[in-house]
Nucleic acid binder design. Structure first.
Length: 190
DNA sequence: CGTAAGATGAAG
DNA sequence: TTCATCTTACGG
């Protein structure tokens, strides 16, 4: 069983693997939802595809805060994505949460997504924020803070982890910084 | 200021 | 494959 404190998030590459199998719990808005993290991607300051590549800005400030900080941003003018910050304060590292295996509040997730198929609730970075109710208001929360609307709990230990290229980026396309639980049906497709 | 590019998803 | 949709970053 993983120790759920900041040592889990020593750097974004190892954290991306160690977060797989952890349960992400959201009590955002009108109910509790949760799911096991089954797909992640790593980002850091040496990475052209990272929001932190050109240093700190208004938007990416949470990436430079302490490990466990939640970084939520709006993409394409309509979708939220969640990251969990890793590494030392001042070093812009984060892990993008790309897919969950639904656990609690599945009916609420179906409502929020207006979709009935359980496999289509949280199998993508923006789908999962919609299903769990995570939005800009949750930016800068901390997953180790019990008062936080978003926190993590122990889930399961993945048997096998696959490491591949990241999805949906145009820079640094050859880095194999995407990780997912082998065989899990809730992993985003492509 | 002006503007172009997004760590996406859904529909056709 | 196209498009919806709008904040952010960055240049002039």
């Amino acid at each position: 069983m993983q120790i759920l404190n900041e040592y889990l998030l020593d750097n974004s590459l190892t954290a991306a693997k160690k977060l797989l199998g952890c349960k992400l719990v959201s009590s955002c808005r009108d109910g509790v939802t949760s799911g096991y993290i089954v797909e992640t991607e790593s980002y850091n300051m040496q990475d052209e595809a990272s929001h932190s590549y050109r240093g700190q800005t208004t938007r990416n400030t949470p990436m430079f805060a302490k490990a466990g900080t939640v970084y939520v941003y709006l993409t394409y003018g309509m979708h939220y994505c969640v990251n969990i910050v890793a590494g030392a304060v001042g070093d812009g590292q984060a892990v993008l949460i790309r897919a969950l295996q639904p656990v609690d509040g599945i009916n609420l997730m179906k409502q929020r997504r207006a979709k009935d198929d359980i496999k289509n609730l949280t199998n993508g970075p923006a789908k999962l924020t919609q299903a769990t109710g995570i939005d800009k208001g949750d930016n800068k929360d901390n997953i180790f803070d019990q008062k936080s609307a978003i926190h993590i709990e122990w889930g399961f230990k993945p048997k096998n982890i696959i490491q591949t290229k990241r999805i949906g980026i145009k820079k640094s396309v050859d880095k194999k910084w995407r990780f997912y639980v082998a065989g899990n049906i809730y992993v985003s497709k492509k």
